[in-house]
């Protein structure tokens, strides 16, 4: 009888420890990011399929560019404190996962040639930053979750 009670207590304690560790395990999961480098200009009318939604979004917000060319695309998997480099043609940018918070929010730091923003991003978020200038247009880096 006593042994049975101890077994039940041990099982309850084990379940309690697992319940406490589960959120920590979830936070330790690497965060998947999609990064895209796009050359956006008024030189021509080529719109790459992967950038069609970006073109629509820009147009909806009053940006009158006509050409959207994909320069680089990659899927990243980052753990807290880890970085990845993104080639920009001339030079590169670096994205660092500063921390993963609760509710799927992650804090990212981007080191671009002209600007180093730190920002929070929840799943479904999309961060777009100009990372350079090209003839009659601009180079954009897009980070999606």
């Amino acid at each position: 009888m006593r042994t049975k009670r101890m077994n039940v207590r041990s099982l309850a304690a084990l379940l309690g420890i697992v319940a406490l560790l589960l959120p920590a395990a979830a936070l330790a999961q690497p965060t998947r990011l999609e990064v895209v480098v796009a050359a956006v200009s008024n030189d021509g009318t080529q719109v790459d399929a992967a950038l069609a939604s970006l073109a629509q979004s820009f147009k909806r917000n009053g940006l009158a560019y006509t050409s959207y060319k994909l320069k680089h695309s990659a899927n990243l998997s980052l753990s807290p404190g880890k970085s990845a480099s993104i080639p920009l043609g001339e030079g590169e940018a670096k994205v660092t996962l500063v921390k993963a918070g609760e509710g799927g929010t992650v804090t990212l730091k981007l080191d671009a040639p002209n600007n180093a923003p730190t920002f929070d991003m929840t799943p479904g978020g999309e961060f777009i930053q100009q990372v350079g200038t090209i003839p009659d247009g601009k180079l954009f880096l897009i980070i999606r979750r």
């Binding site: 979004s57 909806r60 917000n61 804090t107 040639p113 002209n114 600007n115 180093a116 923003p117 730190t118 920002f119 929070d120 991003m121 929840t122 799943p123 479904g124 978020g125 999309e126 961060f127 777009i128």
Partner: peptide, 21 residues
């Protein structure tokens, strides 16, 4: 879904425009 916390500009002469699209 994206909240800017901090921004360090390399060139103080450029004009950043931040837009929630």
């Amino acid at each position: 879904q994206v909240v800017l916390r901090q921004m360090q500009l390399e060139n103080p002469n450029i004009q950043p425009v931040v837009m929630d699209m």
